[in-house]
Design a protein around this nucleic acid. Structure first.
Length: 749
RNA sequence: GCCGACGUAGCUCAACGGUAGAGCACAGCUUUCGUAAAGCUGAGGUUGUGGGUUCAAAUCCCACCGUCGGCUCCA
């Protein structure tokens, strides 16, 4: 076989011709010794397909190539480094804890983790020892070496090692051969791991690393599987980069909406009220109200009608919608109401309990009959009158203190009994508004909007400030339309979401089209209609013209959806705006309208919430602006700060003029110095601070300072009012930069 | 719900077996001041709750409640 010559295209467009078997390292050496030293891995592209590859593995064919180096902090380069560091950490842990079984250790966007199965609980105290061990491995500068094995051979080898996780991993891996990476060169002696690679050249290339965090993680993300210990770490090529990274994390914490929410008195969550139940403080309420008014104005323009509905609904309503029993885990306990008929029974049993006697059987039987409780439901077998009283109370639905009673749970789960549910969603109520009147196709679309508060029993460990709560208000609306109207309505909904994001300067978001998982029982409804709805979502997302990803299993239980997802200060993703196509609930509720053919037709429903929820949106917004929210949203828009008693009178006048103009203004005429007054106003992130001294009083001007404390200069009071109102009116994100700009139009400031 | 860490004054933290202390905030007084924290004085806590160990518990142990970081979940 004659040896082939490979044509390698470099990033600068030059090409190299190398003998077959050439590696990325060969290429790097050709270019220069410095590059060869700094190189960590290669990245080649053939036919538009890009792969990262070990430095010392032969390039498969003609390709264009990019050399990843230690001085390059690109995601690709760091990815290889972190994956390699995960191997080093795994080795360290195995050495310190020989009983540890390795499971899976991928790189992450900002680090890596390794899942391990170990009975002994790891604690952060172990980090130092793990790091010390890792340091040793790094110092030894062991090369990462790869070897391949046929699948059969590898499976035999792994089976012999008695690590079921690696066997599982291997079974799920693709290809006829499996690869292993040795941290070192001595096969059978040095640490090795089943791994696709690629890796950096040697452990010495790991410049800086840190073991950071511990958590439990279920094997393969399955809560029924074994709980593993996940150890997180991160790595960089340079110590400085690690330091900066850790510093950034510290800085990001200062933007945390929970921290700023307290500083600015925006909201409060009180243990005595309940987990995940947000109390909006006066300042936070202003932000929320402004946002609601903003969207209400838009909705009016777009032909929505606002409605109000109660916070609870009958269980039967949610049995129809499918919420009961399918989503019971996420619901607050049902509200059980007093059955008047049962009161005499409860009273009698209470007397027995208080008198510490057993009830008379005949009398009890008679009262049970009167109570209209099925004999079969009644706990005759309970011999204890206290217990019997408690159960009778439950059966009579008088209170719910004892609601753990399995009989009750079973009773309700099996469809019996009338009670109420705190609404987990607004749709059933809106559906009933729609269904309360006959509709002609001429009426459609009907668009019903409500700031509807819903309650969901989120797992305690999931709660998070404002972003994950148990009671929240959706800026909800449901559109009932003909199938033909769906594309246009969807497009309008998406544009509304985008308008809101644009207005608030949220540019970093991703769009996800959530589809059903055909293998899951989480989704209900007709297959064909789902297909149509999913296609409608794809089409609408395309029309919107932003990149989006399609994700299976992310749909709502009744239909597919398009979500707008934003990251918080710690990089966690939160779904904000959502638009959902629902072919299912109209069916379940038997909704219809009369078409032009005088026949009844089934409408399609669109659920949409551009903010998602007021709580989550405001939480994210606080972090987005680090508390320095735009003027139109600011709880306090202007602070008037007097310099001394001599300027208090004019300060009061300024305050009054601004207040009369509808501007949210606060006056600080306390006998403090101007420095501290400014400091206080800045701490509250007030957008404009007006310093009022004798000079201003004499001239009728105000001395304008921005939220950063920078003095912008003085301007006539009337002019400041005008500019302020303009900035508020236009919901401008831009601030005054100099007082001269005050006289200009809103756009120029 | 799971794993780990943590709960001390309104906030941020100290004290880590010998019955709690600071800064900020708050109140009073002094000061009337020109742009990033004035001074003095005062008030404020049965150390999340309940048990236990101990002569003695904020401190050690257990349970519960809550918070935080992950996991899982998220209509």
């Amino acid at each position: 076989m004659e040896s082939k010559v490979l044509k390698i295209t470099l990033p600068d467009g030059n090409t190299l011709e190398l003998a077959e078997g050439a590696t990325t390292l060969t290429v790097a050496e050709q270019i220069g010794p410095g590059l060869a030293r700094a190189a960590v891995a290669g990245r080649y592209t053939i036919d538009g397909q890009t792969e990262t590859i070990d430095l010392n593995r032969p390039l498969p064919d003609d390709c264009s190539i990019e050399i990843l180096t230690k001085s390059d902090d690109s995601a690709d380069s760091l990815y290889v480094l972190r994956h390699s560091t995960a191997h080093v950490m795994a080795e360290a842990i195995c050495k310190l804890y020989p009983a540890a079984q390795l499971v899976y250790g991928p790189p992450l966007e900002d680090g890596f983790y390794y899942d391990i199965d170990l009975d002994e609980s790891l604690t952060p105290d172990a980090f130092e020892r793990i790091e010390a061990e890792m340091k040793r491995i790094v110092k030894e500068d062991r090369p990462f070496s790869r070897y391949d094995m046929s699948r059969d051979e590898a499976m035999t080898k792994l089976a012999g090692e008695k690590n079921r996780y690696k066997v599982d991993n291997a079974e799920r891996a693709e290809g006829d051969t499996l690869s292993f990476y040795i941290t070192g060169e001595r096969r059978g002696e040095d640490f090795e791991d089943l791994c696709r690679g690629p890796h950096i050249r040697s452990t010495g290339q790991i410049g800086a690393f840190k073991v950071r965090q511990l958590s439990a993680a279920y094997y393969r993300g399955d809560a029924n599987e074994k709980s593993l210990q996940r150890v997180y770490g991160t790595a960089f090529y340079k110590k400085k980069a690690l330091k900066e990274h850790l510093h950034r994390l510290e800085e990001a914490k200062k933007r945390d909406h929970r921290v700023i929410g307290r500083q600015l008195d925006l909201f409060h969550i009180d243990e005595a009220v309940g987990q995940g139940l947000v109390l909006w403080m006066p300042a936070g309420s202003i932000v929320r109200k402004e946002l609601q008014d903003f969207i209400s104005d838009e909705l009016r323009k777009q032909g929505y009608q606002e409605v109000f509905t109660p916070h609870i609904g009958k269980l039967d309503l949610y049995r129809t919608s499918g919420h009961v029993p399918y989503y019971e885990d996420s619901q607050f306990p049902h509200l059980l109401v007093v059955r008047d008929h049962a009161r005499p029974l409860v009273k009698y049993l209470r007397e027995c309990r208080d008198g510490n006697t057993l009830p008379d059987a005949d009398r009890e039987r008679e009262l049970v009959r009167q109570a209209n409780i099925l004999e079969a439901e009644y706990p005759w077998e309970e011999k204890n009158s206290v217990r019997r009283y408690a159960i009778a109370r439950e059966l009579s639905m008088e209170g719910t203190e004892q609601c753990s009673c399995a009989q009750i749970a079973h009773h309700y789960a099996s469809g019996g009994g009338q009670g109420f549910l705190l609404k987990p969603m607004n749709c059933p109520h809106h559906i009933k508004i729609f269904a309360s009147r006959p509709h002609s196709y001429r009426d459609l679309p009907v668009r019903l909007a409500e700031f509807g508060t819903v309650y969901r029993w989120e797992q305690s460990g999931e709660l998070n400030g404002m972003t994950r709560v148990r009671g929240f208000t959706q800026d909800d609306a449901h559109l009932f339309c003909t199938p033909e109207q769906v594309p246009e309505e969807l497009a309008n909904c998406l544009h509304l979401v985008r308008l809101i994001f644009t207005t608030l300067g949220i540019t970093e978001y991703r769009v996800r089209v959530g589809l059903r998982d055909r293998d899951s029982d989480k989704f209900m409804g007709d297959e064909a209609k789902w297909d149509m709805a999913e296609q409608a979502c794809r089409d609408a997302a395309k029309v919107l013209g932003v990149p989006f990803s399609e994700e299976v299993g992310e749909g709502a239980f009744y239909g597919p959806k398009i979500d707008f997802i934003v990251k918080d200060c710690l990089g966690r993703e939160w779904q904000l705006g959502t638009v959902q196509v629902d072919p299912t609930l109209p069916e379940r509720f038997g909704l219809n309208y009369v078409g032009s053919d005088n026949q009844e037709h089934r409408p399609v429903m669109i659920h949409r919430a551009p903010f998602g929820s007021m709580e989550r949106f405001v939480g994210i917004l606080i972090e987005h602006f680090a508390g320095a929210i735009p003027l139109w949203l600011s709880p306090v828009q202007v602070a008037v700060l007097t310099i001394s008693e001599k300027s208090v009178e004019f300060g009061r006048k300024v305050h009054r003029v601004l207040a009369d103009a509808g501007i949210r203004v606060e006056l600080d005429d306390s006998d403090e110095r101007i420095g501290p007054k400014k400091h206080d106003a800045r701490a509250k992130k007030v957008p404009y601070l007006l310093v009022i001294g004798e000079r201003e009083a004499a001239e009728g001007t105000v001395n304008v300072n921005n939220a950063e404390g920078k003095m912008l200069g003085s301007v006539a009071l009337e002019e400041f009012v005008r500019t302020c109102l303009d900035e508020i009116e236009t919901k401008s994100m831009r601030k005054l930069e100099s007082p001269d700009a005050c006289s200009g139009s809103g756009d120029s400031v």
